[in-house]
Design a protein around this nucleic acid. Sequence first.
DNA 1: ATAAACCTGACAGCAACCTGAACAGTCACT
DNA 2: AGTGACTGTTCAGGTTGCTGTCAGGTTTAT
Lengths: 218, 218
Amino acid sequence: MRILLVEDEKGLGGAIREHIASEGHAVDWFETLSDASASLTTTNYDLILLDLLLPDGHGLDLLARIRSAKNSVAVIILTALDQISDRIKGLNAGADDYLVKPFDLGELSARIIAIQRRLYADGTGMLTLGNLSIDLTNKIILNEGEPANLSSREWAVLERLLRHKNSIVAKSVIEDALYEYGAEVESNTVEVYISRLRKKIGKTSIETIRGIGYRMKV
Amino acid sequence: MRILLVEDEKGLGGAIREHIASEGHAVDWFETLSDASASLTTTNYDLILLDLLLPDGHGLDLLARIRSAKNSVAVIILTALDQISDRIKGLNAGADDYLVKPFDLGELSARIIAIQRRLYADGTGMLTLGNLSIDLTNKIILNEGEPANLSSREWAVLERLLRHKNSIVAKSVIEDALYEYGAEVESNTVEVYISRLRKKIGKTSIETIRGIGYRMKV
DNA sequence: ATAAACCTGACAGCAACCTGAACAGTCACT
DNA sequence: AGTGACTGTTCAGGTTGCTGTCAGGTTTAT
């Protein structure tokens, strides 16, 4: 997934960024509301991790602006304010979840997985697709009963295709899901990953749309 | 679709042109209002992508002239002016949509598809036509349940016929939808594409009007 | 019957795409 | 520190599929 992290504590921000990047997500990290806000106008994120007390304002203001713009991106609030009133305010403002600092990074992963499940509109986290059985929670994929081991980048590509199954996913969109802003990739990385995925999960499941991108059929 | 792009930033203009051309549209790109204006008198566009701040004037002036000439072509405004007042001015002047720079090219595609849907007067983007089920958004066409893979040029031709279904579409109009200005096509390209389409979606769906063009029947 | 318009199979050029291989970096384990 | 397995990235050569063109056949109008 492409994730926007808004957190002004450098130590915590770095740790979060590293942790979720290691799980195969692309993370853009900003320390101020204005920077995050600017990035939101140019990039489509799947999830925002939002601290509340920031140097240039309150996170709930950003959240309110996001929701008033009818943007339904998932938002998890991260904050030290463990008072119930703030929690309620956050959820009222349209947050999807809430983590009280200090929190365990494993706990954060669990919330992210829960969000993912919601994105796939499937409570179980299991997905069946032709010969494939996909367990998003545990990152297990079975091809005709045989397990296929995917690397984290391979998962990221597959995930992106599944998010838009039956629709065409532009090559640039897949690239966006892999690399955070500024990472210049000049070669055919996406093609290579598609190739590897096909080798592992079967040739037929991913269709090439020449000149545009790829499509995963149900 | 045949699209007129008015944008004076060379980098952005090139990127937009390339992106939408790759989706099968024909793009004419001009950097000034006067050039765009001149082209409008000779060509029928389906959509205009209009920057506001141009070297020889303000885009809204062109828009106003277009609308006062009762030309109902779709217009999407592209501009860095993200102030509400400009947005309102643009929509009041008769723009169909509005994109604030910098924007994601995928976002632009989405808006173009939305415009397309409006042109077909069908909110769903789905179309049924005899044995054919057509999903314009995802570019999927089923012929008696069997998927037919169309190339982007083939889509462009089909799209043009659908836009005027039950009416006669002149051969030159189809050619205009395929090629931007200056592209010289000297042979019977349109006939060839009609032939290819018929092979893929069935002989009966496209009728030849000798000496004029073609017609797609409901 | 004739000419004009149209249809369609074939083909070459080209860009997009695929994929095996190479290689450096990372990680777990010793 | 050394080792081996694994991962991410790049490159190069091969393959595929799209495109515009043409030639020869077929249909249509007069």
